[in-house]
Nucleic acid binder design. Structure first.
Lengths: 191, 191, 191, 191
DNA sequence: CTATAATCGAGACGGTACGTCACGTCTTTGC
DNA sequence: GCAAAGACGTGACGTACCGTCTCGATTATAG
């Protein structure tokens, strides 16, 4: 119904900025449309005019921040070392409160809204996973190994521990995980 | 504050039953404390007296059912087969729309509420993971393998795929996962 | 806090109408804010936005009706007769069960809430008393008589008997009261 | 139903004491049965066993405090002076916060409960009014004056001003009131 | 001098109304 | 015709009391 040409770009940006700020401050659950509008100096209706509601705004706010980082893994020749670097970086992200809060919010979105979940998966997650997949392929993993599964074998336990807090999520965990997965995919101390 | 000795067991059961029934009918999001109370023929205050709110009741309702099931894995002598059975069952649970939606919603709550997270982890999840851990230990896994890590290597990818819908979550996936993990933990066709 | 300019006049009127209707049907004690809102087709919040609660709405509902009546006493030239008419009318109001119950309830609130008391006094009562005062002044009452006291000499006993039910509250009582007060303020059969 | 012989006198007294204390502290409206029971160290059921509810307890608490004072007016020979003394005393009662709160609570009772109103009227009020009536009769008031009306002419305006706060309630008011009433009942400087 | 029955303090129970909060829509006023 | 502002109907929230009911523990008669 509304005409996108006449849309106010300042309002749009102010709303997304306010959303990010409030996400970090209060978390997703305590976030309200009214609070976003107030913080952005916008009317509540402006949000409902251009987005479907809280979840759509949050998704929009997060996607264009997180996306579009260089999505190829470095190849040092040592696969085990490269994977360690990636997983250690992921652990570090989870340890950072702001980044963790953001991922948390994003995950909630993914859980609650099937339609938006696809976007998150394809625009944010897939590039990262595919980069690791490419590195695995280049690392000489036997062809009979399902690379999608292998990638999830790396990240799945990490997410699991982060989500469910089943134990400490530190570099040792990342390293141990890499070692196990290297064995699983047939490594004999090469890479 | 309230005295657990004087608690009315009938009310407790009626509330948990009503919660399960309404979860199946309306889903978690549209579930309200008032509706639970009405369905259970209980007062709303009775729910707030014994639980913290909707999420706590739902957790209790789920734990209540899961707890009834014996929390030791069958030991057929064939570790690989037993693990396949467990993971296939988990996949089946995730395939059930009601159970899946409930777990999804509870996971969202978990992200916002640390206390709830601990409860979910310890009462809902840990027993299941520990049962698998016990089966691994009995299965002759080499002592240098970190069993906690091994268990998360089994369930982490499953949760990852379920949460982020990165691909089909079916029995083939479960089987492939078991095979990889068996290799990771040094299986040589025994168990 | 809210802006009176943006107030919805339809809601205001519907709420006051509903209040009067429910007062007549159920009485003051069984009146609830929720019932008023439901009957008026309004939101409960709308009532709390503009009034302090049940008592304030009831007060407004009553003022609204009383204010419509012209607040000057007829001057027939015969002061005694005019006063009789006023007091007889007051007695009649007290005889009406609905009006009587409402005034009774409002008086109870008045005893507990100083702000409400001031409102009742100034908006509901004072206009009536002042009208009588004006009539007394026009009727040639000697200047040394305190008119405020004179007015209360008329209405005080009426309220007393109504409140405390010390005896029949009928037209004879009103007439006898007027006669006594006429004597008190120095009447010699004029006016 | 309950057996009055087995009634615990300590509980009874503690409840009535607590009621009086809370009346003075919080007023009638904010008084709750639970608070009375808690303050009295009694169970809530004990109150419901022996009284009908809040109003019945309050009545009971007040009646046996206020009642049974010497209920005859002094006769100095000067009727005007004696009436002044009575009305000034009443004004003083209304000025005392505790006594005023008590009367306030009692008045609320009178307003809200028809059945109990009669008891209040007959056991508390009537003796006082009758005492004044007797003094008027002894003071040589002309026989054609309705003494009930005359008494209410004295106390009605006082209650009116107290209830509705239409002006200052002080000794001057009491004196002016007595003067007017003396005129009304035909006084020519005697008594 | 028991026993046995009612009262007691305590407090959980099914309810009902409260006053608040956020929702998503609608209305007003000014660019 | 979009925007800021904010009132509106709706409905869930969590709290406070209500009056009833269920507990042992404590009297206080009646056998």
């Amino acid at each position: 119904m509304p005409d996108p040409n006449r849309r106010n770009e300042n309002s749009r940006r102010a709303i997304l900025d306010a959303t990010r700020a409030l996400l970090a401050e209060t978390g997703y659950a305590d976030l309200t449309v009214g609070a976003i509008a107030a913080r952005a100096g916008a009317g509540r209706q402006t949000i409902y005019r251009w987005w479907g509601g809280k979840s759509a705004v949050v998704l929009d706010a997060l996607v264009d921040t997180v996306a579009a980082e260089g999505m190829t893994l470095p190849d040092s020749g040592d696969l085990r070392a490269d994977l360690r670097a990636v997983l250690r970086a992921t652990v570090a992200e989870f340890a950072d409160p702001v980044l963790s809060a953001t991922t948390r919010a994003l995950t909630i979105e993914t859980l609650a809204d099937d339609d938006l979940a696809a976007q998150v998966r394809d625009r944010l997650l897939r590039p990262q996973l595919d980069a690791v997949k490419d590195r695995l392929r280049a690392g000489g993993v036997p062809p009979e190994v399902d690379l999608d599964l292998a990638v999830e074998l790396l990240f799945g336990p990490l997410y699991h521990r982060w989500l469910l807090r089943t134990g400490p999520l530190d570099q040792d965990y990342a390293d141990g995980l890499v070692d196990l997965v290297m064995t699983a995919i047939g490594d004999r101390r090469s890479g």
